[in-house]
Simulated assay, not measured.
Amino acid sequence: MKNYLLSRLSLLIGFLLGAQFFVTFLLIFALYVSTFFLFNQEESLKHFVFNYKVHGIIFCSFLSISAGSIINQFYDREKDKITRPFRSRIQSFLKQKYFLYAYLLLNTLSLGIAAFISYRVFVFFLIYQFLMWLYSHKLSKILILNNLSFVGLSLYPFFGMLVYYQTYSVQLMLMSVFLFLILTSIDIIKDILTFHADRIFGYDTLANTFGIKAAKAITIVLVVLNLYVSAIIVDHHHLHNWMSGYFSVGMLLQIVIVYLLLNKSKFYSFSALNLLRLWVFIGILCMLIDGIIAYLQ
């Protein structure tokens, strides 16, 4: 009985890791926070809570992102044996055909809900699912396109909510540029850390095409550019206390990131990667806190 429960638990953990549910939940949390406190300028909390279209779109995003993670691990499974041996070992308890079944089920369910909302939402997610498959199948191995498509797909649901609420401003554009640059930096650093595996399996990343030094130099340029964008946001746009502090402290953090990338040690690159990921999460929390404070006033 004990062995049976352990095997079932291993299957569940393997599936959750394959679908990257934990990362997906973070993205959905970020989508909810940004939708209500950033994109939604007029709708009250009551109307937002009972707006089935918004919740339907976000749930479709959750299903589509989970499906995209599954198909991505399907194509990257050989590479993951080198770069993520523990996760690959856990996933080996579950046959690949079950991941594919889950991929089809999640996508079908997402499109079904999207069609119920509107044909525009259906088309939006149909395109999204196709692009995620294309990224996993082809784009992830093409130089520069791999980084741009990864970031673009990460931001795709946020762009959808932006269009839904028709909320456009210079401040939002600058914050989008900030997020785009930080996600691009994260993806390039990730490629630096998986340099050898990418070369073995034919992934044409900046690191294995131009060398690690060149990839780090490009990342440093992006970080410095993001520092400038942060300064513009702080100086020229009115932000609430927590978000203002976030971008102000972020300028110091980006100087630290540059220092870490100038070091040759792999540990420093790994530290820079995790600091940037952590900073994205802190940004979500700061937006949530500022939004709650503004709502209660």
Score class of each variant (00 low, 15 high):
Ile144Phe: 05
Leu153His: 04
Gly56Cys: 04
Arg89Ala: 12
Phe180Met: 13
Phe116His: 12
Phe130Leu: 14
Phe267Gly: 06
Arg77Glu: 10
Phe21Leu: 14
Gly291Arg: 07
Glu42Arg: 15
Leu252Cys: 11
Phe37Leu: 08
Phe158Trp: 05
Val49Phe: 13
Ser88Gly: 03
Tyr101Trp: 11
Phe62Asp: 02
Phe124His: 07
Phe62Lys: 13
Lys216Trp: 00
Gly160Leu: 00
Ser88Ala: 14
Leu225Tyr: 07
His240Glu: 08
Ile113Tyr: 07
Phe124Val: 11
Lys213Phe: 08
Ser118Cys: 04
Ile289His: 06
Lys53Phe: 03
Asn72Pro: 00
Phe158Ile: 01
Gly56Phe: 06
Phe59Pro: 00
Leu253Asn: 09
Trp242Ile: 11
Ile70Leu: 15
Asp235Pro: 00
Arg199Glu: 14
Asn146Ala: 06
Tyr128Lys: 09
Ile292Glu: 08
Tyr32Phe: 14
Leu104Val: 13
Gln297Glu: 13
Gly202Phe: 09
Ile65Tyr: 05
Lys53Met: 09
Leu16Val: 10
Ala217Phe: 14
Asn72Met: 01
Leu172Asp: 00
Asn263Tyr: 13
Leu285Arg: 03
Thr108Tyr: 05
Leu153Ser: 03
Leu288Asn: 07
Asn40Gln: 04
Met251Asn: 02
Ile127Tyr: 10
Asn72Trp: 00
Phe201His: 11
Phe22Gly: 02
Ser140Ile: 01
Leu179Ile: 15
Val256Cys: 11
Ile255Pro: 06
Leu275Pro: 03
Leu134Phe: 11
